[in-house]
Design a protein around this nucleic acid. Structure first.
Lengths: 184, 184, 184, 184
DNA sequence: CATGAATGAGGATTCATTCAT
DNA sequence: TATGAATGAATCCTCATTCAT
C-alpha cells in the first residue's frame, strides 16, 4: 500500500513481465496481443509502453531478465572436486530439470519465439560445453571410462530437456546410471 | 502439360502445401500471411481457399500429410530379428536423423506452431515406445544388459532431435556406443 | 454498371483521390484520418491500402497527379507575340486565378501539408520565372517601360495567390493597370 | 533566482509558449505532441496543463499573445503626415517584412494550422484596410495618382508576404517604385 | 479454375489528458 | 509547483476471408 513511486514502478514492471510470460506461454509470442498481456496484468495496453518500448522489446527483456542461463551457469560453475562423478552429474541434471520445471512458461516461450531460437541454441551449447568439460576432467582423472564426452554431454542435456518439454520427465538417476553403469 | 482436371488440382494442392511449408518454416506460422503463401506458390490468396478451408486447416493438413510419423513407423516396424542390436539402433537413429534433416522446414514448423505441440509430443512418444519395445526384447533375449529401457529410448531420441534442432547433429554411432559399450 | 475490372479499379482509385482531396482540404492532412477518407469515399479503410501504400503515399500521389503545375506551364508556354503585353498579362493572370479557384481544395492542401511546402515554392518560382521572362522581352521590345521585372513578376503572382487564399480575389485587370498604367 | 511565485509562474508560462512555438514551427501543430513541447521546455507533460487548458488552448494563446497583429497596427497607426508617400510606404512594408522575418516560426504555424486560417485572413485584411486608407488619403491630397487603392494595398502586402514565405524576400524599395514610379 | 476487389475485425502504437503523490 | 503513472480513444495499418466476375 504505502509504496513509493519508485517501488510502485518497479512492482508494476515485474507484474507486466509476469503477465507477459504467462500470456506468451499460453498463446505463443505471436498469438498473444499486447491487449491480452495488458488485460492479464489488469492495466491498459498504453501503459505497457511506458515500461517497454515495444512488444519486441518486451520479449527481449523477458528472455534477458527471466532467462535461466545465469542460474544454469552458477549450477555448473560450482566446484565438485571431491565427490563421485555420477553423484555430481545426478545433482546437476536434477537441478537443471527443476530449473526447466520451474520455468515451464519461459521454456514454452523459448521453444516458440523466433527471437528465442538463438537463445535456445546458446543455452544448450553452453550447458553442453560445461558438462563436457566436467566429464573430460573425470576421464582424465581415470574416474570415468574414456568416451566421447561431447556426445555424452549433449545426450544428457537433451534427454532432460525433451523429457520436460514433452511432459514426461526423465528419471535423472536412471539416466546417469544408463550412461555410466557402476559409476564408470 | 496434358493434365486432367483431377491431376491439375492435385498438383496445385501439393504446390500450395510446398509453398506453405517453406513460408511457415521461414516466417513462422503466425508470421506468414496467406498472401505470403499464395505469392510463394505464384497464385492469389483467394485460390488458396478453394483447396483449404482456412489457414488453420492448411497447417493441420501440412502436419497430417507431410508429418513424418508414418515414415517413422515404417522404419521402426521393420523386422530386425537377426542383426545385432547396436547395428539396428545405429541404423534406426541414423534414419531418424536423416528424416529430421530432410524435413528441416517441417521440424521448424513443429517446434514453433502452437497447434503442433501435441503432434510433437505424439511423435516423440510414439518413437519412444517403439524403441523401448525393441530394447526390451533384446534385453529379454539376453543380448543387451538389463537397463531402464524407457529412459534409454527417450535419451536416444532426444539426443538426435536436439542435435538437429540446435544445428550440431550428434554422431549416431558414437551415441549408441555411449549407451551400449561393447555392444551390450 | 457494366464496368470491366480494370475500369472499376481505375474509377475507384480516382474516387479515393477525390475523397482524399476533399477530406484533406477540410481537416488538413494531419487532421484527416484514413478512416475519414475511406468514409468520404464510401469504403472501408483497408481498401485504401490496395490502392495506395500508405497515407503518405496518398498525399504524394495527390500532389503529383492532381497538381496544377503542368497546366500552369501550358498557360505560360503559349506564344503571345502579336498582342499587347497588358492584354496578355491580364489573360494569363486571369487563367491563373481561375486555376486557383478551380483547385481551391488542392490549394488548401498545398498551404497546409509540410510535404507540400517544396511544391508550393516550386510552383511560385516557376510562374515567377516565366512571367519575368515575358516582361523582360516586352521591355526589350520597348513596349513596357524599363522596370524590375523579377519583382514585378513576384508581385503579380503573389497578389493573385493571396487574393484567392484569403477569400477576396483580386481584380486582375485592375492589378495589371496598377503596375502598367496606360499599358506601359 | 530570488523570484516571487508570481514571477516564476509568469516566467514558466513564457518558456512554455517559446517551446511550443519552436516545436510547432518544426513539426507542425498536429505533428508536435504535448510530450514534445514539454520536453522542449524541460518539464513534464502534466505541468503544461497547469498553464493551459488543452493543446488547442495553447495554440490559441500562441496566436493571440505572440501574433504580430498588434505590432502591425502600431506600425500602421503612426502619423506620417509630413513625409512623402513612397518613403512612408517603403518604411512600412520594410517593417512588415522584418516582422515576418523575425517571426518565421510563427508564420510557419500560421500557414500550417487549421485553426490559424481565420487569423491569417484577418491579418491580411487588417493590413490591407490600413494601407488602403493611407493610399486613399494621399490620392485625395493629390500626392499619388488616382488608382485602385484596395488592389494596390493587397498587392503590396501579398508581394512581401509571399516573398518571405517562399524564401526569396522581395526588394521593398523596388516594389514601391514599381507601383509608384517617380513617387506617384 | 482463378482472380482480385472488398470487408471487418483486430494488430501495435501514440497521444491528449487526468490525478494521486 | 511539479511529477509521472495510468487511461481510453484514436491512429495507421495488416490480414484472413468472401465473392462477383
Amino acid at each position: 500500500m504505502a509504496r513509493t513511486r519508485r517501488e510502485q514502478a518497479e512492482w508494476r514492471r515485474e507484474r507486466l513481465l509476469d503477465a507477459a510470460l504467462r500470456t506468451f506461454a499460453g498463446k505463443g509470442v505471436d498469438g498473444a496481443s499486447v491487449k491480452d498481456i495488458a488485460e492479464a496484468a489488469g492495466v491498459t495496453p498504453g501503459l505497457l509502453y511506458r515500461y517497454f518500448e515495444s512488444k519486441e522489446a518486451l520479449v527481449e527483456t523477458l528472455l534477458a531478465e527471466r532467462g535461466f542461463l545465469p542460474r544454469l551457469r552458477e549450477l555448473l560453475a560450482a566446484d565438485h572436486q571431491e565427490r563421485p562423478a555420477t553423484e555430481v552429474l545426478t545433482e546437476l541434471l536434477g537441478a537443471f530439470d527443476r530449473l526447466l520445471a520451474d520455468n515451464a512458461d519461459l521454456v514454452a516461450v523459448f521453444f516458440g519465439a523466433t527471437q528465442a531460437r538463438a537463445a535456445l541454441a546458446e543455452l544448450v551449447g553452453e550447458g553442453r560445453r560445461l558438462i563436457a568439460g566436467f566429464l573430460a576432467a573425470r576421464v582424465a582423472a581415470g574416474e570415468l571410462r574414456p568416451h566421447d564426452t561431447a556426445t555424452a554431454a549433449t545426450t544428457l542435456f537433451a534427454a532432460v530437456a525433451i523429457g520436460r518439454r514433452t511432459g514426461s520427465p526423465v528419471d535423472v538417476a536412471g539416466l546417469v546410471d544408463l550412461l555410466f553403469p557402476h559409476g564408470r
